[in-house]
């Protein structure tokens, strides 16, 4: 099998899987019914994308793996999502900040992925970008509302941005598989997106009167499978059924 392509697919899909899982935890607990429904829509979009990637990955692997074994049967060290998406739903400020910091990246990434030489990937990107374009709008609007809203909301969203900022740099790190896929014209050269990313983020934060954190040290490790302590708990739930009742169909 094409190991690099396989790993590259997981690198994209794991982000959406873990973020979708985090958003799924919120269903039924949102600050208003309307917002609850909106967040679930985003979660559903992400899981839809995840399934396309994993189904493709299963085909690339060409053995008895399927989307569910890929999603649920790996040990923690083999999940390669960035640390940002596994951060908890501390409050709605964190939910929105995490979403916003990821959405802006996600949109830029998918924009480029549309011209991938790999037709399947390009097709998934073309479909997904419409969804993610809405996610960016949704989370940016909320960033502005919370930043500008009340004293309390301003404080909370500023805190969330400050805390999550340390996980943004990792979005642009490249693994061996990434480099190989970029060279083949399949993958997206994320290093070229970085400047634009921070510019766009800063524009929205400025408008929301949120200070752009001035941080020199960033966290990394997710792409190598070295996660934060939150990850084990996420997987405990995600994998519960497949681990407790292996080799059954549902």
């Amino acid at each position: 099998m094409n190991t690099n392509l396989y790993n590259y697919l997981l690198g994209i899909a794991d982000n959406s899987l873990i973020l979708g899982q985090r958003l799924g935890e919120l269903c039924g607990h949102g600050p208003s019914l309307e917002t609850d429904i909106a967040l679930t829509n985003i979660s559903l979009d992400l899981f839809g994308q995840v399934r396309s990637y994993y189904q493709y990955a299963a085909k690339v692997a060409g053995d008895n793996r399927d989307e569910d074994t890929i999603a649920m049967m790996r040990p923690e060290r083999e999940y390669v999502n960035v640390l940002l998406v596994e951060q908890p739903n501390t409050d709605f400020g964190y939910v929105i900040a995490r979403q916003f910091l990821f959405d802006v990246y996600h949109y830029m990434f998918l924009t480029e992925l549309q011209s991938s030489k790999d037709e399947t990937l390009a097709a998934i990107a073309k479909k997904s970008i419409k969804e993610v374009s809405y996610h960016v709008r949704f989370s940016s609007d909320w960033i502005k509302r919370l930043g500008d809203g009340t004293e309390e909301s301003h404080k909370r969203i500023q805190n969330a941005i400050n805390d999550l900022w340390t996980y943004t740099d990792e979005l642009f790190h490249q693994t061996e598989a990434d480099k190989k896929m970029i060279a083949d014209g399949v993958g997206v050269d994320t290093s070229k997106l970085k400047e634009q990313y921070y510019k766009q983020i800063s524009n929205v934060l400025d408008e929301a009167t949120i200070e752009v954190p001035d941080l020199k040290y960033f966290q990394k490790g997710g792409k190598q499978g070295v996660h934060t302590e939150h990850m084990g708990y996420i997987l405990a739930e995600l994998q519960y059924m497949q681990r407790a009742y292996p080799n059954m169909s549902w």
Binding site: S32, E34, T35, I37, A38, N41, Y134, F138, D141, R145
Partner: peptide, 20 residues
């Protein structure tokens, strides 16, 4: 109908609630 703080949010909520 639905609740929203402003027109923009009302449009987004309407999209999320009534055109699923």
């Amino acid at each position: 109908s639905l609740h929203a703080a402003d027109a923009e949010m009302a449009l987004e909520n309407a999209r999320d609630v009534y055109t699923r």
